[in-house]
Structures are given as C-alpha cells and as structure tokens.
Design a protein around this nucleic acid. Structure first.
Length: 353
DNA sequence: GAGATTTGACCTCC
DNA sequence: GGAGGTCAAATCTC
C-alpha cells in the first residue's frame, strides 16, 4: 500500500532526523558544566531514536500479541533497549503466537494492533478525527467500562469484496474529548479504488449521522497535506510496529559499503509471508509520528507522544532474533555502517518514490 | 433498492 | 463471569 509505505518512510526519516538533532544537543552538553542527568537523558533519547529507526529498517514481520493500550513505556524499559537482549520467554511466546496465527478463532488476539491519538478534525467541521486514508464501515458500537464515551468499531469497506481484514476502533478520549484514540488492527490487503473521487465526494457531503469518520481516501495525498496534519500536532502512540514493507526500499543517504542499506527479510519468508499480509500502516505518511521517548519535540516542531509497551518491543525483537529466523536487529551492523548526511533533505517530496 | 448505520445478541478471551 | 469484540437483523439515508 502506498500510504503505508509513505508513512513508514516518513517515520524513519523523523526518527533519524530526531536522533541527529539530539546528538547535536548532546554535543553542546559535552562540557563539565552540564549535568550527567542531562547527558544521560539525551543519550537515551538518541539511542531510542535510532533503535526505532533500526526497527523500521529491519523488522520483517508484525507483532501479534494483544497490547496494553495506553500503557506508556519508553524504550528504557524495553527488552531491546541498549544492550538489545530480548527476554527468552517473550521470544518463545511471540514465536508461538506467530505460528498460531493460522487459527482464525484467535485472529482477534493475534492481529497486530497499534493506536493513534488523533485530534478531532476541525477542518471539515466534523467532530470525528481526521481521516486516515482508508474507507471504513462501522459495524458496531459499545459502551466501554470506565470510559466516558462509547467505542465505535469499523472495518474496511472492502472486507467482503476484497477480503480485507483491517479494522479499527475509535474512542473519544475521556481526558480530552477533542482527542480520538484510534486503534487499528490488521493490515489493509484491499485496493482502495477511486479514492480520490470518493474523497472529494464524501468531503463535500459528509454524512451527518457519521459522527466520527469520513470515508475518504488519501492514498494519493500530497505531501503538503501531510505537512498540514503534522503541523496540527497529531499525538500518536503506537502499539505495534510493522516495518516489513520497508524492505525493498533504498535509503540513498544512509550508506553502507554498497551505498545502500540492505533490508533483510526472513530467510524463508515465513514471517513476512504470513504476517506481512496482516498488517499495514493504515494512514498516510504524516498522520503517524513514532517516537521512542514519550515527550519530545520533533524536528518539525510538532508535539507528539509515543506509547510503546514493553511487550511490543519484546515481540518485535523476539520475532526478529529468535530461532532460525534471525533476519535482523543486527544493531551493530546498522549503527556502525550507516552514515547520515546531516544536510540531506529527507523530506524532499518524492524522495521515497 | 443499495449501501451504511444502529443496536441487541452472541462469541471470545481473560 | 464479565468485558470487549463481532454478528446480523432492523432501520435509516440517499
């Protein structure tokens, strides 16, 4: 999916850029007057940022365990953290879950899941969150215990036609009603046809009964639109990362000896084969901002947060390092061999095309 | 009439 | 057993 690609590309760029900025900050603090705490904090942020970028580059499958929505955990607590040592129990669990993924009865549990926090869309005059680029059809609503507002359930419009299993849940935040927590599940396997036309038509005539979501598509959304969303300061959290779709893409300014980064896949494609089809970024590029630290200013000046549960990272790492499938997370490889041109215009439109 | 939403019932998981 | 997630018939909108 093009939008998923774009989103992952931009996420990667943001992480790398942020890491670079933080490194510059750290450099400024490399004097005796700066506190150790400050240095350590910056160092941690840098490492976290690059870890996330590496995950994006390297991860070859999705994660599958149910996640703790809203459980804010930064990478300092994560099993991969700096020393990159996943817990063996998590490794086995993750692998087992991946293998069990055939079982349709467990699909709810196994589908990858991640959450965005999206500002209500003021541009369209609707109360719902901004559109994420896919066509959704509401199939349920439920009052959730200890939640002020009901949760709405959506699935891909093309579920029946194309067998797309992607779903999402939308729930208004209790703390800030202008924020919608959008939890995505599964990957879009559909082809969103006529998205441009449908976007125009649906935006012109929004359904008044549709209180949250517009059925629009931004698959061809231009970077300027994404930038607008970015400026809007979307707050995003992620439950799972799947960056497998990054695999074929070359990052010209990150140079290995071959002048490109090799993005490995699993040797037998078992993970990517099974799970890549299950997961895709649901949104356009800049509607998701992943960060490792939960409180940071990104390089574009936007505020965003990231929530990343410990188990998420454990699964990501475990699935990529466990057993015979050890495609990636060669952290030394990437950090040692990747060179960033600090002046490279990552955000040049069409750079990733 | 087709497609989307609503909502009560049922299913799954913890 | 309870909460969350999904189904499907009824209803609504165009």
């Amino acid at each position: 999916m093009e939008s998923g690609w774009s989103w992952e590309h931009n996420t990667l760029v943001k992480e790398l850029t942020k890491g670079m900025e933080l490194a510059k900050q750290l450099k400024l603090h490399l004097n005796p007057t700066s506190s150790i705490e400050t240095k350590e904090l910056l160092l941690h942020k840098i490492l976290s940022s690059y870890e996330k970028a590496l995950l994006i580059l390297n991860w070859g499958g999705s994660v599958s365990q149910p996640q703790h929505i809203g459980a804010t955990t930064n990478f300092a607590e994560s099993p991969i953290s700096v020393n990159g040592s996943p817990r063996t129990e998590d490794m086995s669990i993750s692998l087992k879950d991946h293998l069990d993924n055939k079982d349709m009865s467990k699909k709810r549990k196994l589908l990858p899941r991640w959450t965005d926090q999206v500002q209500a869309s003021s541009e369209t005059g609707l109360e719902g969150p901004k559109d994420d680029g896919y066509s959704w059809r509401k199939y349920g609503q439920k009052d959730i215990l200890a939640a002020k507002y009901p949760r709405s359930y959506y699935r891909c419009t093309y579920r029946n036609i194309q067998g797309c299993l992607a779903t999402k849940q939308v729930q208004r935040s209790d703390d800030d009603p202008s924020i919608f927590e959008v939890t995505y599940r599964g990957r879009h396997t559909c082809i969103q046809v006529n998205h441009a036309n449908s976007q125009a038509s649906t935006q012109e005539k929004p359904n008044p009964k549709q209180n949250n979501i517009q059925n629009t598509n931004y698959a061809n959304q231009q970077p300027t639109d994404n930038l607008m969303q970015l400026k809007a300061g979307l707050r995003v959290s992620t439950e799972n990362l799947n960056v497998n779709e990054m695999a074929p893409f070359t990052f010209p300014s990150m140079q290995s000896s071959e002048n490109q980064v090799f993005l490995p896949t699993t040797p037998d494609n078992s993970f990517s084969g099974n799970f890549q089809q299950e997961f895709v970024s649901p949104a356009t590029s800049d509607s998701h901002y992943y960060s490792v630290s939960p409180y940071q200013i990104n390089s574009f000046g936007g505020f965003y947060t990231l929530q990343n549960s410990e188990s998420d990272v454990a699964e990501i790492v475990s699935a990529t390092t466990s057993g015979t499938n050890s495609p990636i997370l060669d952290l030394d490889f990437t950090l040692d061999h990747v060179e960033l041109d600090p002046n490279f215009p990552f955000d040049t439109p069409g750079f990733f095309a």
